[in-house]
Design a protein around this nucleic acid. Structure first.
Lengths: 211, 211
DNA sequence: ATTAAGTAACTAACTGGTGCGTTACTTGGT
DNA sequence: ACCAAGTAACGCACCAGTTAGTTACTTAAT
C-alpha cells in the first residue's frame, strides 16, 4: 500500500472528509439546521459512513467541536509567548486571537452552537479542558511577568482578562450582521477591521498598564 | 366589550400570547430548532392562528426580533442618562446593559439566532434602525460631555465603545456554558456575577479616563 | 346576518437513522 | 507466489416519525 496514491478505500481520508464537511455545515446552520444528508454529500461519502464512523448526528457534532477547540488551543501554544517581553506577548495574543477568529469564522459559529445547547456537547471532551487549562496558565504567566517588570498593575484576574480578550473580538465578528444593519456601520472593510483591532489593543493595554 | 373581562375571543390577546410563546421558543432553540406546533401549544392558541396573524414561521421570527430590540431600545432611553454627570452616566449604562442581559436572557439568544442567519430577519425593521441611531447618539453625548468636563480623553469612537460595552457583558453570558466547562470556573454565582460587572466597569473606565 | 376568531384533521415534503447486501483490501496457510 | 477466508469500507433503498403549512369547518361577537 502506497500512502501517496489515492486509494479507492481509505478510512482515515473518508473520516476526515466527513469531519470537515460536518464542521462547515454545523458552522453554517447549527446543530439543528445542518442536514446529515447534506454533510454526506459535501463529504463525498455515503450517509451510512457517518453513522459507521461517528454513531449519530450529535456525536458527530461533539467530534467537530472537539477538533475545532483543539485546533485553536494548539495554535495558541505555538505562539511561544513566554519568550517575548510581557507587553509584547499580550499584544501578540490579542492580535492572534483576532486573526484566528477572522481566519476561522467557523470556530465562532461552532462555539455559538455549542452554547445554544448549553454546552452539552463539550462535557465529554476532557482533552479540551486540559488544553484550556494550559492556555489560562499562559495568560497568567504573561500577567505575572508584566507585574514583576513594573509594566502591568497587579491583581488583574487572568480568567477575566482571558474572557475580555476573547469577548471584544468575538462579539464584534459574530454579531456583525445585526451591527451592520442596526448601527449602519461597516464592520468588515479593511479599514473597519484595522480600527477595531487597534481599539481592542488599546482597551486591554489601558486596563493593564500601571497607573 | 369590557377590557377587564377575559373574553373567549380576543385577537390582540391571542396575538401577543403567540408572540410571547414564539419569543421563548425561538430563544430556547433558535429559528430552525423551534417548532411551530410547540409555539401554538405554549401560546394556548391554534396553530392556524399563527399563520393567520403572522404569515409564516420566518415572519413570526421577524416580529419576535423586532419586539425584542424595541424593548431594549426603549428601556435604554428611559434611563435618562443625559441628566447625569458623564462618568456616572457611563457607569449607569454599563450596569444597565449587564442587568438587562441578565434579566432578559432571551434577548441574547435571539440576537445570536438573528446573526446565525446573517441578519436576514432584521433587514425589514427600519423602526429598530431608527431606535438604534438614537441609542448611539446618546453614547456620543455622554462621551462629548465627559471630554468637555475633562473627565474622559478625547477621540474615543462612540461606535466602538458601544460595541465593547455590549461585548464584555454579552460574551460572558452567552458563552458561559463552554466557559464553565472548559475554564472550570463559576460564571453564574452571585460572587462571580458581581466580579464580572466590577471588572467590566473597570475596563471601560480605564479606557475612557484622561491620562 | 355578517364577519372575524378559532379548531381539528390533513398533507406533502423532509429527516435522522437502519437493514441488508456488495466490494476492496488484508492476512495467513500452503 | 498464490489463494481462500475474513474484515472493513461502502452504498442502496427504505422506514417511521416529524414538520411547516393548508383545507374545510364551527362558533362567538356585533
Amino acid at each position: 500500500m502506497q500512502a501517496t496514491k489515492a486509494r479507492t478505500r481509505d478510512a482515515d481520508a473518508t473520516k476526515s472528509r466527513i469531519l470537515a464537511a460536518a464542521k462547515a455545515e454545523f458552522a453554517r446552520l447549527g446543530l439543528g439546521g445542518a442536514r446529515v444528508d447534506e454533510i454526506a454529500e459535501k463529504a463525498n461519502a455515503n450517509k451510512r459512513m457517518i453513522y459507521h464512523y461517528f454513531g449519530n448526528k450529535e456525536d458527530l457534532f461533539i467530534a467537530v467541536l472537539e477538533d475545532a477547540y483543539l485546533n485553536i488551543r494548539t495554535a495558541e501554544q505555538e505562539l511561544q509567548l513566554d519568550n517575548l517581553p510581557p507587553d509584547e506577548a499580550m499584544e501578540t495574543l490579542i492580535r492572534f486571537t483576532w486573526d484566528y477568529y477572522l481566519e476561522h469564522p467557523e470556530f465562532i459559529r461552532l462555539v455559538n452552537s455549542a452554547n445554544l445547547h448549553k454546552g452539552k456537547h463539550l462535557k465529554s471532551s476532557q482533552n479540551v479542558v486540559e488544553a484550556s487549562r494550559t492556555y489560562v496558565a499562559m495568560i497568567q504567566n504573561i500577567l505575572d511577568r508584566g507585574v514583576e517588570a513594573g509594566l502591568f498593575r497587579p491583581n488583574v484576574d487572568a480568567g477575566q482578562l482571558n474572557i475580555t480578550i476573547a469577548a471584544i473580538g468575538y462579539y464584534y465578528l459574530t454579531n456583525r450582521f445585526s451591527g451592520e444593519i442596526l448601527f449602519e456601520r461597516d464592520y468588515m472593510t479593511k479599514a473597519a477591521l484595522d480600527d477595531r483591532l487597534a481599539f481592542n489593543i488599546d482597551t486591554i493595554m489601558c486596563l493593564l498598564r500601571r497607573v
